[in-house]
């Protein structure tokens, strides 16, 4: 009888099946909840906190909270929008996200979510961390400046590719993405652009080498419609300006 089960999201009944999270049920019903570290192909992670919703008055991550019949969930409220905006602003100042010069600009999930929650300026003081680019791989560039620690590449490489190339090292503000080799260089791994790990980055941290800005402004993924309509970078084909599969 699971098809009859539903919860309420912003006053609208959302059907769900056993084991589904609020996020999965909402997306299946066509309701967008902003997110970065969530990807339906992977187990939920709950790390970016952008998908925070209010469940029966309590703030919880929609990607990790199982859906239940007695839930009244708030998603599009001014309060939640402000919390999400604050999280995005912190993500932007913690790394070096220079949208004006970034190849992913216009097709970047981080940028698109930031626009979606109404973030137009970083607000906080920039950390300006020094993070050298790793261009040692012949096909790909790893730009740590743009990493938001969503661990999607970590999960994809470990769980799908079976290569376990990426990891997050350190704790708290010291946490950072590393490459699992003695040299720490991507060039020393068997990473390939065909790997799942190369397809899932929601920012421009993993990019195809020697290519850039090939899609004209105005035709990029999020140039004309917001992410709530277009969907995530990782789930869209290159022809639509999403993740490349070459």
């Amino acid at each position: 009888m699971s098809e009859d089960r539903s919860f309420t999201l912003d006053g609208r009944p959302i059907p769900f099946q056993d084991g589904q999270t609020i996020m999965v049920a909402a997306l299946a019903a066509g309701v967008y909840i902003p997110h970065l570290c969530f990807n339906p192909e992977f187990a939920p992670h709950g790390s970016c906190r952008v998908c925070l919703v209010k469940v029966n008055g309590r703030v919880q991550a929609a990607c990790t909270t199982p859906a239940a019949v007695d839930q009244t969930v708030q998603n599009e409220t001014g309060e939640l929008r402000e919390i999400r905006r604050g999280i995005l602003q912190m993500l932007f100042v913690e790394g070096n996200h220079v949208c004006p010069a970034c190849e992913k600009s216009g097709a970047c999930q981080l940028q698109a979510v930031a626009y979606y929650v109404g973030m137009l300026a970083p607000h906080y003081t920039h950390f300006y961390p020094r993070r050298p680019v790793d261009a040692s791989h012949p096909e790909a560039v790893l730009d740590f400046n743009r990493c938001i620690l969503c661990e999607l590449c970590v999960r994809a490489s470990r769980d799908v590719d079976g290569k376990n190339i990426f990891a997050v090292q350190g704790r708290g503000i010291q946490a950072h993405l590393v490459v699992n080799t003695p040299s720490g260089k991507l060039g020393a791994t068997d990473f390939s652009l065909a790997d799942k790990a190369a397809q899932v980055c929601p920012t421009g941290a993993i990019l195809t080498k020697h290519r850039g800005y090939e899609i004209p402004i105005g035709q990029r993924l999020y140039d004309r419609k917001p992410i709530s309509v277009v969907g995530d970078v990782a789930t869209l084909a290159e022809s639509k300006g999403g993740r490349r599969h070459d």
């Binding site: 004006p100 010069a101 190849e103 680019v133 261009a135 560039v141 080498k209 020697h210 290519r211 850039g212 800005y213």
Partner: peptide
């Protein structure tokens, strides 16, 4: 920085 970023 990567060379293909330079013009932008």
């Amino acid at each position: 920085r990567p060379y293909w970023e330079v013009p932008v």
